[in-house]
Nucleic acid binder design. Structure first.
Lengths: 249, 249
DNA sequence: TTCTTTCTTGCATGTTTGTGCCTCCTTGTG
DNA sequence: CACAAGGAGGCACAAACATGCAAGAAAGAA
């Protein structure tokens, strides 16, 4: 077995099982533990895996770190994101702010997509590295690490010069009466600005966010164009639809 | 059997079996191993296959972009970065642009550091997520995916409003006479701007970058304050020191 | 054709790489 | 602390490699 082939196997196994033990790999791949150790060391130097005593762990891109902290409801979020995919078409200018659901969405975007993405979130920008035909415009500002978005005066001013066809809003809390709200003032201000420069607005919310509120109101619910939710529930659905929102579930 | 024909067979076999072993091919195609080696070398140069020790694998995506470079030579870069650590002190405003060496440096910064980091590179910003007392200011712009930095007018203008104590320059090529140079014009412009707003400038270069030049000059060598290199070599060292640069090795 | 020029191939050479083993040091855990 | 498991660095060796060279094949040109 070739060295590269073996190292690829190790990475595959690691992705599958989330951890590997050197002594175990040695048996499974029929090479000495020394060789495995050398492989793990090389892969670690390349930043592909994270070496630890007696084995290795996944070196998930730092992107994962922040999504991990946000709670690992990834499967639901990923499903929501899938429903949003066909709202994004070639040639559009899409404004995407932070949030793990939005990140999931970006991961699912087809590599062939040709459009412009404006974002104030470094993880979102980085997730678009391999989309050759997507032009990424980053909005600067002061990095707000809790949500991994840039905020502040600079962010505000930069947005002032732009227009977007679709704003995909990272949503914390939403209530049919009070609207969308977030826990920090500066986030609210920036989101409000983003709302004002976009033709259409999309919000994706997991069930646990429906009918909850936070400290700072971004905008009333009726400013949303699309709302993507997990389950149907006719009552809730009509509650939002009566405000002119297209509810997708 | 003609050479072309044989090489085509090799590619076909590779596509079929996902890997080839030189010694094996030698028998199957009834030519010496040297010939096979030469074939593999040629095909690799053309980017058609990926040469590895003792055989070859199918070629991945052809580009050598940021993610590829991120994997290269990390040990050396990491060593360079270590030498830079004590130039960064609490309270400073540090401007850090892109590059894998700079990323290595950021990874090594102590979590207790209290300072302000200005950067136009999303990966650098994200790497500082866990540094609670480091304020990160991101400079926006159009994301240049090859080096993962923001460039363009917006970047330029945002920098205009700032000042930094130390600029840690991501270095591509450096030559004692011609100075620091990079392959793209917009990168050169932004780096030049960064140079002009910083009190001190630090460049870290691996040996292979020394005494090489690229298309666009950023600044003459004597504008650097510190140069961190791998090895000593008294000749080269004095060459730079004569220009008033502190060379650290 | 015949001669010259360029390619291609196999071989001999010295070098590099990958691997296993050994010794000594480090880490984690009771 | 003690002790076992894991790791670092060096050594040895075979397989794989690069390189120069010369014999032969292929392709033109006279």
């Amino acid at each position: 077995m070739l060295k590269q082939e073996r190292q690829q196997r190790i990475v595959d196994i690691l992705n599958e099982e989330h951890k590997v033990i050197a002594s175990d790999l040695s048996k499974r791949l029929s090479v000495s533990e020394d060789t495995i150790r050398r492989d793990l060391k090389e892969l670690d130097n390349q930043g592909i895996i994270k070496r630890v005593h007696s084995g290795a762990l996944r070196a998930g891109p730092p992107v994962e770190d922040f999504s991990t902290r946000q709670g690992m409801d990834n499967e639901n979020k990923s499903n929501l994101a899938t429903k949003a995919l066909n709202l994004i078409k070639d040639g559009m200018v899409v404004l995407i702010d932070g949030g793990t659901t939005n990140l999931q969405l970006v991961h699912q975007l087809p590599l062939s997509l040709k459009c412009t993405v404006i974002t104030n979130s470094p993880p979102i920008a980085m997730a678009l590295t391999n989309h050759e035909d997507v032009e990424v415009i980053m909005i600067g500002g002061t990095l707000f690490k809790q949500s991994m978005v840039n905020l502040g005066i600079d962010t505000f001013e930069a947005l002032d010069k732009m227009r977007a066809d679709l704003y995909i809003m990272g949503t914390y809390k939403i209530d049919p009466q009070l609207g969308v709200s977030v826990p920090s003032l500066s986030e609210a201000l920036v989101k409000r600005k983003m709302t004002s420069i976009s033709t259409e607005i999309l919000a994706m919310v997991t069930d646990d966010k429906l009918d909850t509120i936070s400290n700072h109101i971004v905008c009333p619910t009726d400013q949303l164009t699309y709302l993507i939710t997990e389950r149907v529930n006719a009552d809730i659905k009509s509650l939002y639809e009566r405000q002119g929102i297209t509810v997708i579930d």
